[in-house]
Write a protein that binds this DNA or RNA. Structure first.
Lengths: 175, 175
DNA sequence: CGACACATGTAACACGTTACATGATTTG
DNA sequence: CAAATCATGTAACGTGTTACATGTGTCG
């Protein structure tokens, strides 16, 4: 796999590595583990399972076809690919095309425009951070997954804000 | 547009907002502005232009059909959508499914496994940071775009490393 | 019975990406 | 002339996402 964006696919594979499961189960498990922050359309689970089976990473698990459930189990090839994915860096050395970077870079020739975009992005990021904090306060503590997702968003927004400051400084010193 | 990942599409739109251009020109411009760090397959430019035209965001610019070039210009609708995109936060309040988060969250039930993944990710991120630094040293200073991309990667990797530390602490205190 | 959760699946489309085919123009 | 660059385009595929259709079991 050389594709860059395979979170759902690999996430489901990881769940199946723990124990065989059927589609609907995977949906609820995925949502539970992500603190309800990432709803997952059930339909996507089934199409993803088809693709995983096509690639030989999962296989139907006989396990007595109870009710109308169709369980899947991970294969050896699936375990190997999962292992690789878990150990691969989540950020590539050649950074994946990125919204924030593109927004700033396409404007960088015109310092005035670039500074305006930087200001707009700074405001937007602040607003995201605030609304996220409110949502987290409403939810209250307790769910570790939801908390960790919140923290990840926070540290990243802060990183991006620092980067925006840095960009602005570079632009100003250049003019 | 409610789609989350439209960097190429909107990037090209932003270039066309500056002045009409034809496909090949857009490819070279995009790569120049991103310091050669993000090569862009020409074919993608043409398919993207088709989609932009289909959506009424760009239109063929007559401008004397010189050679075999087919120039495009941004439309009013295109300007409006570009404006929205530039002002929209590059990170959403409900964070987009994210590789690093998923990698950790799917393992969080089993503290031992989670700690192993955290360690692996920490190592992988360090390695990315180092190889990126070497690449940047080889390239030498001079290209602002390439430098800014490098800086963005650096601050983000550092943010993710801090988050991994945080996760580990939470896991240890829970056990 | 009616509503709701459980359970599976299909169809259509989004953007991103690569590989390939084709020709005109410039330059050594 | 040969090679490189300029220039356009198609075909095929990848994952992610939504909307829709269909049926079963349970519980008030």
């Amino acid at each position: 796999m050389h594709t860059a964006y395979v979170s759902v696919r690999s996430g489901l594979l990881a769940l199946l590595a723990r124990e065989p499961a059927h589609g609907y189960q995977l949906k609820t498990e995925f949502e539970r583990r992500t603190g309800g922050v990432w709803p997952l359309n059930v339909g996507q689970v089934y199409t993803t399972l088809d693709r995983l089976e096509r690639d030989g990473l999962v296989a139907p698990a006989g396990s007595g076809g109870e009710r109308n459930q169709r369980a899947y189990a991970i294969t050896d090839a699936g375990r190997e690919e999962l292992r690789e994915w878990l150990h691969a860096a989540a950020i590539e050395a050649v950074p994946h095309r990125d919204e924030l970077l593109v927004k700033v870079l396409v404007a960088i020739d015109d310092a005035a425009v670039a500074l305006e975009i930087i200001a707009a992005q700074r405001a937007a990021l602040f607003s995201v951070l605030q609304s996220r904090r409110k949502a987290q306060q409403r939810a209250g503590a307790g769910d570790l997954a939801a908390e960790l997702i919140h923290d990840a968003l926070a540290v990243r927004v802060e990183a991006d804000l620092r980067w925006l400051d840095h960009c602005e400084a570079r632009l100003r010193e250049a003019s």
